[in-house]
């Protein structure tokens, strides 16, 4: 069994143990209502995290996702407030926001070779301002809390079959699709190759710049999609929506086993990761621990996960080196004989 599989099993085992612990403290945890909520929570972060996974597999990072969520939700609110655009068109337009942001990010990163982290942090800043600028305001210029009343739009945030939230369903569909795309298409293969060994990828004829721009666009689109679901569930949106969700997204992806160094990871892992994170958050709530622990837990989990991943990689490399030395000396022994 590969170490990836072992890692995943440990993660699942940990989740089961945590669930048992939480249930022991508060049996309400196991109620279908809570579990459905938990899944929805996981899905809201998870949808963004799916796109983020693609970026991280190319060894990049996208800090602008929170800003994309904020602007997208404001775009939706505006259209809902002032126009009667059909909902499918509205959703399409909102996804366009993310795609455009990704295009700009990817352009600066590939064409000008600017550091991904700072570029996307800058676009995040710009977007967060933009969200405030375009927010619906009252006559005094204060941001107005617009309640969404369009039923077709609210449909996204409600539950469907077996009480499962549509957000959860969308997350599942998106996750499965993204996983299949990553693992079973040439473009998906190119994404891994771009992150694992860009020089080799270019030698093989892969257009790494196009691939990079593509993943940032996808990341933006995922964030926009999440914005639609979140605003629909909340039946309103604030211009700050999504800002600060970056850490949750990064935590999900890192827990899922996608490495910052690129070339490693998949969507299954991220889906598990977002579930794990939702479980932790839900657990903190259900067990009555202070909610202030939450950021400590999330920050701590990221650090610990990354350290453990680095250590186990070092260990494997060490073992491989040992095995090589052994093989060499065996060969030498044979030569001598």
């Amino acid at each position: 069994m590969s170490h990836h599989a072992v890692r995943r099993l440990i993660l699942i085992g940990l989740m089961l143990a945590l669930s048992a612990l939480i249930t022991a403290i508060n049996p309400v945890f196991l109620s279908s209502g809570n579990l459905l909520k938990l899944l929805q929570e996981a899905a809201q972060t998870g949808i963004i995290a799916v796109g983020f996974t693609f970026v991280m597999i190319t060894a990049g990072i996208d800090m602008s996702i929170g800003g994309v969520v904020a602007v997208t939700s404001m775009v939706c609110i505006n259209f809902l407030h002032y126009t009667k655009v059909p909902i499918p068109v509205l959703v399409f337009l909102s996804l366009f926001v993310g795609a455009l942001t990704g295009l700009v990010n990817g352009y600066f990163i590939t064409k000008f070779k600017l550091p991904e982290f700072i570029v996307t942090l800058a676009t995040r800043s710009i977007l967060s301002g933009l969200a405030l600028v375009i927010a619906v305001k009252d006559s005094l210029g204060f941001v107005q809390n617009v309640y969404i009343q369009n039923d077709s739009y609210l449909w996204f945030g409600t539950s469907g079959l077996f009480g499962i939230y549509r957000t959860t369903m969308a997350f599942l569909i998106l996750g499965v699709g993204a996983q299949v795309f990553l693992k079973h298409t040439r473009t998906g293969t190119n994404i891994y190759a771009t992150g694992a060994n860009p020089t080799a990828a270019r030698l093989t004829g892969i257009d790494t710049e196009r691939t990079t721009i593509g993943v940032y666009m996808f990341s933006g689109v995922c964030a926009s999609l999440a914005a639609v679901f979140i605003s629909s569930r909340m039946m309103t949106a604030m211009p700050e929506l999504g800002l600060g969700s970056e850490m949750d997204v990064i935590a999900s992806v890192v827990i899922g086993g996608t490495a910052f160094s690129g070339g490693v990871g998949d969507v299954w892992g991220t889906m598990l990761g977002s579930l794990f994170l939702a479980l932790i958050k839900n657990g903190i709530l259900k067990t009555g621990i202070s909610p202030w622990i939450q950021p400590i837990a999330i920050g701590g989990i990221i650090v610990v996960t990354v350290i453990v991943d680095v250590w186990q990689k070092k260990l494997r490399e060490h073992l491989a080196a040992r095995a090589k030395i052994k093989r060499l000396s065996a060969e030498r022994g044979r030569d001598a004989a």
Binding site: T185, T189, N190, Y192, A196, N197, T204, G205, V264
Partner: peptide, 29 residues
């Protein structure tokens, strides 16, 4: 070496020229 770590031997051999399924255009693993 110009191989891609994290990928299998087969994936590396056919990188960029993977056999596709006719209808779905998915890689025929």
């Amino acid at each position: 070496l110009s191989l891609i770590p994290g990928m299998t031997v087969a994936q590396n051999i056919f990188l960029g020229k993977e056999p596709l399924r006719p209808l779905t255009r998915l890689i025929d693993v």
